[in-house]
Amino acid sequence: MAAGGDHGSPDSYRSPLASRYASPEMCFVFSDRYKFRTWRQLWLWLAEAEQTLGLPITDEQIQEMKSNLENIDFKMAAEEEKRLRHDVMAHVHTFGHCCPKAAGIIHLGATSCYVGDNTDLIILRNALDLLLPKLARVISRLADFAKERASLPTLGFTHFQPAQLTTVGKRCCLWIQDLCMDLQNLKRVRDDLRFRGVKGTTGTQASFLQLFEGDDHKVEQLDKMVTEKAGFKRAFIITGQTYTRKVDIEVLSVLASLGASVHKICTDIRLLANLKEMEEPFEKQQIGSSAMPYKRNPMRSERCCSLARHLMTLVMDPLQTASVQWFERTLDDSANRRICLAEAFLTADTILNTLQNISEGLVVYPKVIERRIRQELPFMATENIIMAMVKAGGSRQDCHEKIRVLSQQAASVVKQEGGDNDLIERIQVDAYFSPIHSQLDHLLDPSSFTGRASQQVQRFLEEEVYPLLKPYESVMKVKAELCL
């Protein structure tokens, strides 16, 4: 049975990233139509530049190519590739079939990587351009969430054990800070992308030097003109047959890092959902379990974690691919890159769409948070109580021993009897502590235990987050809708 299948058929496997999760716009960027249309555009740009620099290419040939950029006979191309065992030459023939007058000058002087690699770089750039505003929107939604809850005390956790208090907004800023680093890295790697350009079979530009009869300047002009037509500021000066596969490492490393950030955020949300302090959106008709109707599973956060793990592992592909590119190139890269580049971007696209949807509907339960604080705060307040007693004339050592005994009794009630923490009640009825009984409410005010959390939130948002989001103001209103 021949390899390949009808990918629109229910009898043929289709990647869930495309069929179930990723956005239509990201799927289109990695589609065959987008790819092969870009090949034709690159052939047109090459012909236009070659004509401008004096090669015998007519206006009629150029116009014929322009008129057929979208006229792609995919069936013919597939048949040609089956016959020739070469995808680029299959599309040269297919393009030439609908451009008979231009057929002889299509791909003039070029090698397969002229269309293959340059198209990949265009796709990487455009895919990054799709991700950047999506990530900015996630940051914006979380920034709104953090600002609104900047002063809401909550129990902090280290080692997932109760620690000092923080605020809900401050905790959210930990998430935002990681995503801001990801946004900066995505922008950097996007701006650092260079075009492969017009380089020939081993990167020496020998074929173009021959076409222009040894004119170095025209060869350099050709490279520059096509690079500018493709919208790049610069091209690699040095290439082998391909652009260095280190570029793929750079791009997928940034995406993998984004995956790590999203995994951490969504894990926190899942843990908070278990504590009943916070939940992701839950639709009115949504079913959490087929057997347990009360369940409210954090399905979206779980999906993000599941896909983020996949995204983090994909960076190993370009690392290994770059390491086995012998001399000017081997074909070890080809099949692998067809999979890992598309999957990385479709996965990143999915987790950003999902995280935006989550961040637009996060639900906080202040009463649950308050109750958990009441359970733990008495123990945390013991040092403040000791200091207040010393100020009232008591002995630190005597007070410490009193607190120690009462704390152990209260802990026994919590752990052995399943009761509430009654340390404060014990202190309130103990005559030894009568000098500070009137101060206990103040000493137990949760806001006095959150330090500068709310001020940190305000400063972080104003100095770091809002300036970073400013270039994306025009796209901030787009909502994230999930079908599944």
Rank of each mutant, 00 (worst) to 15 (best):
D268K: 00
L108Y: 09
E370P: 05
T166D: 00
F95A: 09
K479W: 15
Y21S: 00
L255N: 08
T350K: 04
D129G: 11
T382C: 09
I139W: 03
L258W: 15
G361R: 14
M278I: 12
R33V: 13
L423R: 07
S301P: 04
Q409S: 10
T267D: 00
M292I: 05
L468A: 12
S407D: 02
S23W: 07
V364I: 14
K82H: 12
Q409V: 09
G104R: 12
I403Q: 02
T242Y: 00
A431P: 13
A127C: 07
D317V: 06
M65S: 00
V475K: 15
F460S: 02
R137V: 15
Y294F: 06
G200H: 03
S448D: 14
K147C: 09
H7R: 12
M76Q: 14
R125D: 06
I123R: 03
M278H: 05
Q51H: 07
Q320D: 06
A230E: 03
L258G: 03
P471Q: 15
R303I: 05
Q455C: 08
H442K: 11
W45Q: 11
S474F: 14
G4T: 15
R329T: 03
L179Q: 04
D216Q: 09
A110Y: 03
M476F: 15
D317F: 01
A291I: 02
M316A: 08
S67R: 12
P153Y: 04
S15P: 12
R40W: 01
R309Y: 07
C483L: 09
M292Q: 05
D192T: 14
E360D: 13
F345K: 03
A103Q: 11
D441G: 09
P298F: 07
E80A: 14
P100K: 12
V390F: 06
I238H: 09
T166C: 11
H7Y: 13
S434G: 12
Q205P: 00
D178A: 03
H263W: 07
E283P: 00
G200S: 11
I269G: 02
A49C: 09
G109M: 00
G54Y: 03
V324E: 08
L346G: 08
V262M: 09
F345H: 06
E343V: 06
V168G: 02
K295A: 00
I339Y: 01
N185T: 09
L42G: 02
A410Q: 04
L84D: 13
T267G: 11
C305T: 08
C99E: 04
M181G: 08
V457T: 12
V390R: 03
T382E: 08
K218T: 06
G451F: 05
P293F: 02
L209N: 07
G54S: 08
D120E: 14
F282A: 13
G4E: 15
A480D: 13
